[in-house]
């Protein structure tokens, strides 16, 4: 059980990395990677929101949406399958939690709010977050601890990816790039190369 959880964690950081293997959250990854400090801030925020939303959505999926999930209410619901609602419920939960976190941070953790606050509204529509919940649903984790490990792992993987990328981009200012390739063009190619680097972990 423990080794399972550890496996899921390592897998989701390196092998199934959100950015390099599934291209999730690419928009903010490309937009907010001009310098390492902001990139790290956004990475932390994504990591945090994933850690909160995935287990919550896991519980909702397990006890409300899945086929036969409602049997704990009454045996009559054994055949009810609400999973077609999962998209809309997941996105509503994510938007709600992000809003809630923003308010809690603003009230009780002003320092954290200063660093993460500006990114939080951005995150509600970041595909890495919804993607985390959808992959969690697809992979059928047996317990909530597994889904938590998956969430933390994916978050750290995303943080790692964006920080590395931002560091490379800072260096890139001093490189000579063909003028038409500057900006986005080279950014994609670098991400591709980083992705190839990460594929070396496949053998683990």
């Amino acid at each position: 059980m423990m080794s399972d959880i550890f496996n899921i964690f390592v897998r989701s950081v390196f092998i199934d990395n959100m950015v390099f293997a599934y291209f999730l959250g690419m928009c903010s990854y490309l937009a907010v990677s001009k310098n390492v400090k902001t990139a790290f801030g956004l990475g932390l925020a994504v990591c945090f929101v994933l850690t909160v939303t995935v287990p919550v959505n896991y519980l909702i999926d397990k006890y409300l949406l899945r086929e036969g999930a409602l049997t704990w209410v009454s045996a009559r619901f054994a055949g009810t399958d609400l999973s077609f609602l999962s998209l809309i419920i997941f996105i509503a939960v994510i938007a709600g939690i992000v809003q809630l976190l923003e308010m809690v941070f603003e009230r009780y953790l002003p320092v954290l709010y200063m660093t993460l606050g500006i990114f939080l509204p951005l995150i509600a529509v970041n595909c890495a977050i919804l993607g985390g919940s959808l992959f969690m649903q697809e992979r059928n984790f047996p317990t909530v601890a597994h889904s938590l490990a998956y969430a933390v792992g994916s978050g750290i993987g995303w943080l790692l990816a964006i920080t590395a990328f931002a560091a490379i981009r800072e260096r890139l200012k001093y490189a000579k790039i063909p003028p038409k390739l500057q900006g986005n063009g080279i950014a994609y190619i670098i991400t591709g190369l980083l992705g190839m680097g990460f594929m070396a972990f496949l053998g683990m």
């Binding site: 390099f20 291209f23 038409k180 390739l181 986005n184 063009g185 190619i189 992705g195």
Partner: peptide
């Protein structure tokens, strides 16, 4: 077929289209 190639292809397409 591997994922990274998609990114590199897009980068190349951007390059060509900008030119």
């Amino acid at each position: 077929i591997l994922p990274p190639m998609a990114l590199i292809l897009i980068g190349t397409i951007i390059w060509i289209s900008r030119g």
